[in-house]
Design a protein around this nucleic acid. Sequence first.
DNA 1: AGGTCTTTGTGAACGCGCGCACAAAGTCGC
DNA 2: GCGACTTTGTGCGCGCGTTCACAAAGACCT
Lengths: 233, 233
Amino acid sequence: MTQAPGTRRDIPDATVARLPVYLRALRALTAAGIDVVSSEDLAQAAGVRSTGLRKDLSHLGSYGVRGVGYDVARLSDEIARELGLQHDWAVAIVGMGNLGHALAAYSGFATRGFKVRWLVDEDPEVIGTVIAGLTVIGFDELAMVAGDGLIAVIATPPTAAQDVADQMTRMGVRSILNFAPCVLQVPEGVEVRKVDLATELQILAFHEQRGRDEDDDAARLGVHAARVAEAAR
Amino acid sequence: MTQAPGTRRDIPDATVARLPVYLRALRALTAAGIDVVSSEDLAQAAGVRSTGLRKDLSHLGSYGVRGVGYDVARLSDEIARELGLQHDWAVAIVGMGNLGHALAAYSGFATRGFKVRWLVDEDPEVIGTVIAGLTVIGFDELAMVAGDGLIAVIATPPTAAQDVADQMTRMGVRSILNFAPCVLQVPEGVEVRKVDLATELQILAFHEQRGRDEDDDAARLGVHAARVAEAAR
DNA sequence: AGGTCTTTGTGAACGCGCGCACAAAGTCGC
DNA sequence: GCGACTTTGTGCGCGCGTTCACAAAGACCT
């Protein structure tokens, strides 16, 4: 994890990773007409422990009221501000294959602070076509229009991903979400997050296999009854 | 630490999460015709430190040769075995929207140990249609054909995700990959991994904003030229 | 065969994040 | 206004993961 020195307010990475989850839960509460929530309830909705939630929020400041809880609207605003979501961020999706298409059409971005503004591909056959209301452009055109703070989403085959990343960083992009199953080498100061579907499945497969082995053991040792009793406790 | 064969080894979660990355790098080396690799080179390809890589591998046993490195084929097999990838795992994708379509057509699963076997939706309009060579079925039909060790991928809207998870766990599924932006409540023993695209972007946005603030400082201090020189290296 | 050199494997130290216990602070009832 | 109750905020300890330093082990050269 890239740890830049001189951080303005040092919020632990683990906390930052959970803030979006809290924000999502808070938005749901707002939609449900609830305007005050306790750390216990919010933690449940976010799938964490209440003590951890409170510690996370304490890094942003003290926005709770003891004996009452947190003001939903206030806390939403604070977290959104901390995440830099007061204004929408422009997103460019690179690689108009299956995944690129789906991402371009995904409605979940717009509601959470992101505007898919450019679709990019290198194939002349694809450039110029309209997908989800946007015209696909090439890299050279993107280089001309791309402004500061652009977030790039790489949805190309892995063989092209490094080259795309190089071009992106050259045009000043410092945030990349990489869907290609490969490791990207980027210069200092560029943040890369990866989403690897097959990797996630392989991690699940590991636990699935381990669970299966444990079941074998349990059957052999006759522990099953004990486990049922435990679960019923 | 010599591990007796058949012993249940406790491998740290952090290590398990990296094994797929190592496996991917090793497959690439095989494709390149390289059959021996040092921890230093493999670590570079995987984007980790060599000491960390060696510690990770030490949890699987001693498969390296000092002074030489690791046999690529041997290590690939060992990691694949540890992850339970000797045989393909069956995958069911639930929710045939944009994302479900893309996942059904995604070629990256088949090459890495997974076989998308069932596509599921609740919409009668969608059930029966053919996507990527598979006929979409409903939940009741899935419940009849689903075997042990099935991995479920939830690609529904968040409002439907919990209901889908409930049905899946009822039919014995113990591994779920959740693309819906919501927290799933599942019984003990069920493993859930989540992939939330908007969350990833929000984490990037946080760092982007922080970097922007630092740029302001840097501009005041006149460090910008130094960074450009660095980037041009 | 002996020596040197490369590379692995691992014990130890360090830092981080999580959970617990408890104090602080504010609300509600009377 | 005062006491009891609720809920937040936080210092502390522990366990995990990462990094460092170094010893062990094998290959290669002469």
